Computed example of a mutant assay.
Amino acid sequence: MSKERLNLLTLQEAIDLLGVSRATIDRWRKEKQLPYIKIGKEIWVDPEQLHAWVHLHALGNGAERRSVRKAARKTVTVGYQSGAALLWSTLIIKQLGLFEQELEKTSPSADYEVRWTNASNGMELVEELIAGRVQIVSVGDYPIVAGRGLGQLLPRFRPLVLAFDGKTSGGGGISLVVPAGGRVRKPEELAEVAISTVGHSSASYRLGQYMGAFGFDSAPVVHRRMGDCLSGLMEGSAGAAVLWEPYLSWAQLLGAGSPIGSEGVGGDYLTGLMTDGNWADGNEDTVIAYLKAHLRAHAFIRRQPEQAAVLIHQASGFPVSVVSRVLPQIRWDASIYGRDLQTLSRVGGGQYGEPNGDGGAGGAPVFQKRYLQEAVEALRLPLLPDAPLPGEWSREHVY
């Protein structure tokens, strides 16, 4: 007998009718006894029973309606870094309202308030994540790995990596820069020069690599904000600085400094999205909505770089000329490669786990790839495999 004669809805039809995600439907089936019929492997929904269930859960008496409205209002705070070019996709999300759009699609009856917190470095955002003041953060590879150690020390913090963001290869994106016209010509001459960078960051990690490889371990290191590092080069108060983009390109455009040779030092530079797995467990729809916005922002940057440069300029204050120079140098790709896990292993000084959905032992951050896969499927992009993508970064499929 056909489902039309039985007057039944497919599960997808029920999802479309309610305007929610598959994850929400599955949770409602388990927790709120959403009525359904299983015939073989197929799941069907009786529209009359569905209407009665919706009426029971959302259209009760006046006190219940007030309670539902109050419970539906949620605040989500996103932490970002406008001063880090590899994380500029967040600015596109914010400027275009992509997150709010996806939340509306996922839960049209809910009342969401999205807040944004701009930080000067990633470790500030990790601290905010631990404190529960932000729920999703965009950070570099060093803060991602540092989260693992903090998760091992703090049993209530379960760091979860959702997706990658901007990537650069072979030491690009962060470089050791010396003042233009200065006396330093090669790395070995930096031993007695004051070097500035942001402390406890992906830049300071690279500085440690440089110092060990070129033997200037005794050089004084000054921890400053990235903007102050650039100013120090321009004013002559710093003998060198480790700059990340866009400050690296800005220094070159201003004629304030140039990268010094670092062949053989520095692997890929990665950035990504983190959350607390404990929060994500109860907010799957919100996580998936943000990842959909994240993927849409990547596509926007790749397809409309000129418009993206203007939006980023408006949100960050960096000159359009600098932004336009930097954007094409970054690979905007949320997907997880084995190559990326190897980079995190180098940064963390040990083995970095493969993507899974079980949480890391001792609080180690893991990739909850299921969320990214659901976002990819919802946007009708080519499906991602369960395992990390092999080989080199693909030219054909970027997310």
Rank of each mutant, 00 (worst) to 15 (best):
K30Q: 15
K30E: 15
K32L: 10
K32N: 14
Q33C: 01
L34G: 00
L34Q: 01
L34E: 02
Y36R: 02
I39F: 12
I39N: 06
G40A: 05
K41L: 11
I43N: 11
I43K: 02
I43T: 15
W44V: 01
W44G: 03
D46R: 05
D46H: 05
D46S: 08
E48V: 14
E48T: 13
Q49W: 03
Q49F: 03
H51T: 14
W53D: 09
W53S: 10
W53T: 07
L56A: 11
L56N: 05
H57K: 12
H57Y: 13
G60V: 06
G60Y: 03
N61E: 12
N61W: 04
G62F: 06
G62P: 04
A63H: 13
E64R: 14
E64A: 11
R65D: 05
R65F: 09
R66G: 02
R66H: 10
R66N: 10
S67Y: 05
V68G: 04
R69E: 12
K70F: 08
A71Y: 05
A71W: 11
A71L: 11
A71V: 11
A71R: 14
A71H: 11
A71M: 10
A72P: 00
R73T: 05
R73P: 00
R73W: 03
T75N: 09
T75V: 13
V76N: 01
T77S: 13
T77A: 08
V78W: 02
V78E: 04
V78H: 03
G79R: 09
G79W: 11
Y80N: 01
Y80C: 04
Y80P: 00
S82V: 08
S82N: 06
G83I: 03
G83M: 02
A85D: 08
L86M: 12
L87G: 02
L87K: 01
L87Q: 11
